[in-house]
Amino acid sequence: MKQIFLLLVIAVGLMTSCLGKLEENAKVTDIVSVGQRLPDFTVTTSDSSLVSSGNLRGHASVIVFFSTQCKDCQRALPALQNVYNKYKARVTFVCISRAQSGNDVAAYWQAQGLNMPYSAQTDRSVYALFATAGIPRVYVSDNNGIVRAIYVEKVNSDTLCRTIDGLIANDSI
Score class of each variant (00 low, 15 high):
Met1Thr: 13
Met1Ser: 13
Ile4Cys: 02
Leu6Pro: 00
Leu8Gln: 05
Leu8His: 03
Ile10Arg: 05
Ile10Val: 15
Val12Gly: 12
Val12Cys: 12
Gly13Lys: 10
Thr16Cys: 12
Thr16Phe: 06
Ser17Asn: 09
Cys18Pro: 00
Gly20Asn: 15
Leu22His: 08
Glu23His: 10
Glu23Met: 09
Lys27Gly: 09
Val28Pro: 03
Thr29Tyr: 14
Thr29Pro: 00
Arg37Cys: 10
Arg37Phe: 12
Asp40Asn: 11
Phe41His: 10
Phe41Arg: 04
Val43Gln: 03
Thr45Gln: 02
Asp47Met: 05
Leu50His: 11
Leu56Cys: 05
Gly58Trp: 05
Gly58Phe: 07
His59Leu: 07
His59Gly: 05
Ser67Lys: 09
Thr68Met: 01
Lys71Glu: 10
Lys71Ser: 11
Cys73Ile: 08
Arg75Lys: 15
Ala76Ser: 15
Ala79Ile: 07
Tyr84Met: 07
Tyr84Ile: 11
Lys86Ala: 11
Lys86Met: 09
Tyr87Gly: 00
Ala89Met: 06
Val91Phe: 01
Val94Gly: 00
Ala99Val: 05
Gln100Ala: 07
Ser101Trp: 04
Gly102Pro: 03
Asn103Gln: 13
Asp104Cys: 04
Trp109Thr: 04
Ala111Phe: 01
Gly113Glu: 12
Ser119Asn: 01
Gln121Ser: 10
Asp123Ile: 09
Arg124Ala: 12
Tyr127Phe: 14
Leu129Ser: 11
Thr132His: 14
Gly134Arg: 06
Pro136Arg: 00
Arg137Ala: 03
Val138Cys: 04
Val138Leu: 02
Tyr139Cys: 03
Asn144Ser: 11
Val147Asn: 02
Arg148Ile: 03
Tyr151Glu: 06
Lys154Gln: 12
Val155Tyr: 01
Thr159Leu: 13
Leu160Asn: 00
Ile164Gly: 00
Gly166Lys: 04
Ile168Asp: 07
Ala169Asn: 12
Ile173Trp: 13
